[in-house]
Design a protein around this nucleic acid. Structure first.
Lengths: 130, 130
DNA sequence: TATTGTATACGAAACACTTCGTACTATAAT
DNA sequence: ATTATAGTACGAAGTGTTTCGTATACAATA
């Protein structure tokens, strides 16, 4: 069930790194957490979290070598959809348009992005003429 | 700081009820949790959470009568903005347009709502001509 | 007045997440 | 070969959330 996917914030940070950088070792993930981001996480902390993510089925790992290599077990878009769905219900009681309006109103969006969104809306309107 | 506002899912459910129904007692909130929603939460559980929310400053309360009356200490829109910001960064690394596209693509939106969103985009394009 | 019902307050247990110390092991360097 | 380095595994502490039992107080009523 998609409903069961519930990565924590910490797990999501690690997933983001793996989605972006491809298969990685704990060391690589930990370095990126500490250098690229402001976080200062101990190595064994990152290791533990990734081990737990592996147990949960959130990550795959190749332990053929001493240094294990981890990969995400789930697609980025799938996780995002599941989280979005949950968030939409929890914070906006399911009103997607309310979320969209607040999103576009609060955040800077480039003209290109606005155009892409408008194009999608046009397409939705064509496909679903009421 | 808006950044500090971090209601849990359980707290958010209670806030939703208070935002919708106005000042309420623990009993009223608990009844709504149990009847309107599928949850089956004990009275003292709801009480405890609301007491903690009060301590955190998430709720105000009038304890002039034996039966206390609780009200939200924060506006719905403000909480939503804070949560949306956090969610956008955690799950979409800050790309509002990516979130918007997934949102509109995944969820049914009525023609009226689509029109409202398009109107907002038009206005944004007018105000910020690149 | 005594009993019953309904409040609040409090404490503790259960659970999950994060963090870190430590033990152990394999590889690399001297 | 010995030592240093870098990795995994494991356990336990700290924290926050949720849950519930229980003590206590007030109010209504028989």
């Amino acid at each position: 069930m998609v409903n069961e996917i519930r990565p924590t914030d910490g797990e999501l940070e690690i997933l983001q790194i793996l989605w972006k950088n491809g298969p990685s070792t704990v060391r690589e993930v930990n370095d990126l957490l500490n250098n690229v981001q402001d976080k200062s996480t101990g190595y064994t902390t990152t290791l533990k979290i990734m081990q737990i993510m592996f147990e949960k089925g959130l990550l795959h790992r190749d332990d053929a070598q001493r240094t294990h290599i981890y990969t995400p077990a789930v697609r980025e878009g799938k996780i995002q959809s599941a989280l979005l769905d949950r968030f939409l219900n929890a914070a906006y009681k399911g009103s997607a348009s309310k979320l969209a309006l607040q999103l576009l109103g609060n955040h800077k969006t480039t003209p290109d992005e606005l155009a892409a969104i408008k194009a999608l809306i046009d397409q939705l309107e064509k496909n679903k003429p009421s």
